[in-house]
Design a protein around this nucleic acid. Structure first.
Lengths: 203, 203, 203, 203
DNA sequence: CATGAATGAGCCTTCATTCAT
DNA sequence: AATGAATGAAGGCTCATTCAT
């Protein structure tokens, strides 16, 4: 059925092209920054003509959104698995932190690309296309872990929203450090964070 | 006094124009984002011709740097005072956090502007003009507070670098929340952070 | 044949556009002088948008260089043939002079364009892009003719460099006269020059 | 009387300023080329404000013309003296050539400036402000020398116009060589030219 | 499906010129 | 008599987008 094939984006060749273009866009953003990732440069990297991009995506905005979606897919699940596998709630938080840092270290480029897009991609009105309100999805799972911990009496009574944001921020702060210092010991960094937030949250 | 106001160079009218242009640039960046803050738009907001900007600043880069300097001036001192006024090291950390949050709340626009510039302003090579390595100056004072606390035996043995980054990240994460939810209770937020990091750092 | 026309790269339409733009640039330089030959004016003359020029040439410099190359192509060969066809060395010099003047008369515009570019086209440092040292190629062949004549004993012992420059200058001086007085009798002018330099060089 | 003082340009201070500005303009043209000799740069070199230039000259064109006049004044007389002092007509021609080359060597900068202006200075219509027809004054004295020589029977019958242009061109060709090779032996160069044109013109 | 070609708006910058003081 | 300040046009260049083929 057409609706079925369209769900994942048309014919095989269609999806291949889309993937190729998304990859080229991602690489360009990573290598030159969002502001310099013009369609000219993206097309050059993909060794295709600028025209194809419009054929497959309709606009630059759509391509950028495709990069975001593509990059997100598969990321959350990795971490979620690690979290769910943990025995108690303290361990779940530790697993969350460690899972995230490992992910950051293993997917530096993707994370950097998303960061570029989130801080620079704006709509016609000049407002960020992906602002905090849309990132709710990122903080929510963490809040859930914290709530469960509190309800189980393992974690003390703190403002879950503030704590979740703080933990997220602590994690996100690692990316620029990794860019600057690629051999950063992520495991040790994670240990420090786990220690810090265990003390901060335990009852 | 004229000698006083003239202290930073240029005639009265010169400084007035520079201030006006810097303000217009700042407003434009805040309202439309760095990427859209073209000289055309800045000039339009200041209701002057584009030419004047070059008369007073020589280049767009220079104007942007002037915005940064202008915005920074007076910021650090406010917080430093609060920190130094605190009795013990735990209190100094608390003062640091509270001072920062109060500053963020009181200078939302300025902070947002700096954030825009720091994440989007790139040199000819496409690299950030103000990158992490230059922001060392922001983290260093905080590390000093932590070191003093450790040496005094009031704070436990943690990696000061990681802790400082984490605290900074926790603070910086407030800005986008303030944008989205302008009536955020900053005092309560500060209490939470102070509680969190007191537990995390105390011996 | 397509392979033949394609020899110099690009599709048919590509070469046609390039030729059109080069022609428009050349005409603009001839009509308004190099300093006034802005891309805006060149595009207007070609009745195209400014953008196309960059699509085909990348920069104004590249376009100007294309004009030079285009204008040079075919010029040297015409004269060289006339020189080589001459019997003795005195006759070769005469052929050189006559060949040049005929060429100047037949290609007034091209010569004027080259002159404009050579005297006005400067790099970023403000120095002429085509200066004397690069024009060595123009004087060298003439010096070779003179040397051959001296070695054959047909020409007297003079400083070949000075003589070559002098003859070149005498020839180049014709162009502005042609501009001012389009019906100038170039044949008679050539006779005078041949007479003059025959007397000046013969043993 | 005002008309009297106005003849040489007003008050003492007025003339001093004009001279200063003309000098700065000349230096700028020599150092950076006509195309880069903007009023901004000229004013900077003179360490005055742009405004004064307009106060004293009314427009950039007027300033440039003043540079030409100023630079010409005193040049012709030097050479004329040398010519008139020569005994016979052959010697007068030799004196003319030698006088010119000495002048070129002694006044490199001034000559370069005039050359810059003559090849680049254009009116609103895009035509050279100083073209060949206006340079009649330069060739005329030389033609007079040649005519006198022919009438005295010392020089053969050639086209005086062509010969005069040729000699002028030979002389003018020295300037760019001097720029490239500042230690050029001008005396030897003059000897060569004198030899060449003596053979070319003698009866 | 894909390309090459073209467009037009917008960008940063430089310049000659004007004018109030 | 001179200055500093401001203007507006123009310059070279990049970009997202469109479209005939």
């Amino acid at each position: 059925m057409q609706s079925d094939t369209a769900k994942e984006g048309g014919t095989f060749i269609e999806r291949a092209r889309r993937a190729q273009i998304v990859a080229a866009a991602s690489e360009t953003i990573a290598a030159e920054g969002f502001a310099r990732a013009s369609l000219t440069r993206i097309a050059a990297r993909a060794q295709i003509s600028k025209g194809v991009i419009f054929y497959h995506f309709g606009s630059k905005d759509e391509l950028v959104r495709a990069v975001v979606v593509e990059t997100y897919t598969g990321a959350g699940t990795e971490i979620a698995k690690a979290v769910e596998a943990a025995p108690d709630h303290g361990a779940r938080l530790a697993a969350y932190i460690r899972g995230n840092l490992v992910f950051l270290a293993d997917h530096r480029t993707e994370v950097q690309v998303l960061n570029e897009i989130f801080t620079s991609f704006r709509g016609e009105d000049g407002r960020l296309a992906y602002d905090e309100s849309q990132l709710e999805s990122v903080v929510a799972p963490l809040e859930a872990v914290l709530r469960a911990g509190q309800e189980a009496g393992e974690l003390r009574a703190f403002d879950r929203r503030v704590m979740a944001r703080t933990i997220r921020a602590a994690i996100d702060a690692v990316t620029p450090q990794l860019n600057l210092q690629p051999d950063l010991d992520v495991g040790a960094y994670a240990d420090e964070l786990v220690d810090t937030f265990t003390r901060a949250t335990c009852a």
